[in-house]
Computed example of a mutant assay.
Amino acid sequence: MSSPTHTSLSLASIRTLEQDRFADRLGSLVEHSPWVARRAWSRGPFATRQALFDALAAEIRGAGDEEQLALLRVHPELAGQEARAGSMTTDSQSEQGRLGLLRLDAPTVRRIEDLNRRYRERFGFPFIAALRLHASLDSVLTDVEQRLTHDDVTERRTALEQVCEVMRGRLERTVTDDPTPHPSPDTPPTLAGSPS
Rank of each mutant, 00 (worst) to 15 (best):
E161F: 11
R38F: 10
L148Y: 14
R120H: 12
T180N: 03
R73Q: 15
L99S: 09
D177V: 05
T180I: 14
R49H: 09
V36S: 06
H32A: 12
L52P: 02
R147N: 11
T16C: 08
F22H: 02
T89M: 02
A57D: 13
D54P: 03
F125A: 04
Q162H: 09
L17Y: 02
D24G: 01
A192C: 05
P45D: 13
A63L: 08
R173W: 00
R61S: 12
S10Q: 07
Q162L: 10
G86I: 05
W35S: 13
L52R: 01
T5L: 14
A192H: 07
D177M: 12
S28C: 03
G169T: 06
L115E: 10
D24F: 07
G169H: 14
A37N: 05
G124C: 05
P183S: 10
S3E: 01
T7D: 11
T174Y: 06
A58Y: 04
S33M: 08
A83T: 09
L99P: 03
D91M: 08
A12Y: 04
T5F: 07
R103Q: 15
V144E: 09
S10P: 04
Q68H: 07
L131S: 00
A70Q: 13
R39C: 09
S94G: 12
R84A: 15
P188I: 12
P34G: 03
H182N: 02
R25S: 12
V144T: 11
T142G: 15
A55M: 10
E66G: 09
T187G: 03
S33L: 07
T180V: 14
A51D: 13
R73A: 06
D177P: 10
Q81F: 09
T90A: 15
A47W: 00
P45W: 10
L115P: 04
L148S: 13
R25D: 10
H32W: 09
T187Q: 14
L191N: 01
L71V: 04
P34F: 08
A70H: 06
V163G: 11
E155H: 05
D143E: 15
P181R: 09
E66L: 12
G193M: 02
A106T: 14
R120D: 01
R84Q: 14
V74A: 04
R156V: 12
Q93C: 07
I14A: 05
N116K: 06
L9V: 08
Q146R: 15
L11N: 01
A192P: 10
P185R: 03
I128G: 02
E95P: 00
G64N: 07
S10I: 05
A70D: 14
P76V: 00
R118T: 06
L104A: 08
C164E: 14
A83P: 00
M88W: 03
V163A: 11
M167P: 12
L191A: 14
G44R: 06
L72V: 04
Q50G: 13
T158F: 13
L71K: 01
A37M: 06
A58E: 14
G193I: 03
G169F: 11
C164S: 15
G100W: 02
L133F: 08
G86N: 00
S8E: 08
P126K: 08
I128D: 03
D138M: 02
L101M: 12
L137V: 08
R15F: 04
M88E: 14
R103P: 01
L78N: 07
H6Y: 07
L69C: 10
E31W: 06
E66I: 10
P181S: 14
